[in-house]
Simulated scan of single mutants.
Amino acid sequence: MSQIGKLAALFALAALGGCATLTEDSTDQIVEVHVVQNNRELTGVGCVLYNELGRWFVMAPGRVTVARYARPLVVDCARDGIGRAVEVAQSRYDAHDLIGTVLTTGGIGYVMDTYSGAGFAYPPVLTVVIPKVEQPRDPATAEAPANSVF
């Protein structure tokens, strides 16, 4: 093999090494979902996670495998008597991988990783905060206001 051929083969291997689409087994990611209300973690709360690639269900606290994508992941959690909340988890491209991919593939790897979602990831732990639902007071059982003593 000529010197130019060896150099071309070495460059091709380096280019493939920087592209997550070609080097990773999957574009899936496991995320852990927790639900909090009034500074306490709740259990048995149903959550639907979705992005443009699909929908996934998990009972919080719990783990679920989602498809990575360049766009946000929506987390919608609810339970009767507790309430409902929706949070949005932003997808992030690893800066180290981005620089390596752009340098080694001339930007082609970045385009492939953006299209497939392989170069992006969501935060590994997602926390949804459900606001406390105020129960209406029954006027018959409400306490009378106390008199102030000065």
Rank of each mutant, 00 (worst) to 15 (best):
A60G: 11
P61Q: 07
P61R: 06
P61E: 02
P61F: 03
G62F: 04
G62Q: 01
R63T: 15
R63N: 12
R63S: 10
V64S: 04
T65F: 15
T65S: 11
V66W: 04
V66T: 06
A67N: 02
A67L: 03
A67V: 06
A67E: 03
R68W: 12
R68K: 06
R68G: 09
Y69S: 15
A70N: 11
A70L: 14
A70M: 13
A70V: 06
R71K: 10
R71V: 14
P72S: 13
P72K: 12
V74S: 07
V74W: 14
V75M: 05
V75K: 04
D76P: 01
C77I: 09
C77E: 04
C77P: 02
A78T: 05
A78S: 04
A78G: 07
R79K: 14
R79Q: 11
D80L: 09
D80T: 14
G81P: 11
G81Y: 01
I82E: 08
I82V: 15
I82S: 01
I82Y: 03
I82G: 04
G83P: 00
G83V: 07
A85N: 12
A85L: 03
V86N: 06
V86M: 12
V86G: 09
E87D: 04
E87V: 09
E87N: 05
V88Q: 00
V88G: 00
V88R: 14
A89K: 01
A89H: 04
A89C: 13
Q90S: 05
R92C: 02
R92Y: 14
R92G: 03
Y93D: 04
D94P: 02
D94S: 06
H96I: 13
H96Q: 14
H96G: 14
H96C: 03
D97G: 10
D97R: 08
D97P: 11
L98K: 05
L98Y: 10
L98M: 06
L98C: 03
I99A: 15
G100R: 08
T101K: 00
L103Q: 07
L103E: 13
L103C: 13
L103V: 15
L103S: 13
L103P: 11
T104A: 06
T104S: 06
T105H: 01
T105D: 08
T105E: 03
T105S: 15
T105I: 10
G107W: 05
I108W: 15
G109S: 15
G109T: 06
G109V: 03
Y110K: 02
V111C: 11
V111S: 10
V111L: 01
M112T: 14
M112A: 14
D113T: 02
D113K: 01
D113L: 10
D113R: 00
T114I: 06
Y115V: 07
S116R: 02
G117F: 12
G117Q: 14
G117W: 12
G117L: 08
G117T: 07
G117N: 15
G117V: 10
G119H: 11
G119V: 01
F120M: 02
F120H: 14
F120Q: 05
F120N: 05
A121Q: 14
A121W: 00
A121P: 01
A121N: 07
A121F: 00
Y122L: 01
P123W: 00
P123E: 05
P123L: 02
P123M: 02
P123R: 05
P123Y: 00
V125P: 00
V125M: 12
V125R: 13
L126M: 05
T127F: 07
T127I: 02
V128Y: 06
V128A: 07
V128P: 06
V129Y: 07
V129S: 12
V129P: 04
V129C: 05
V129W: 11
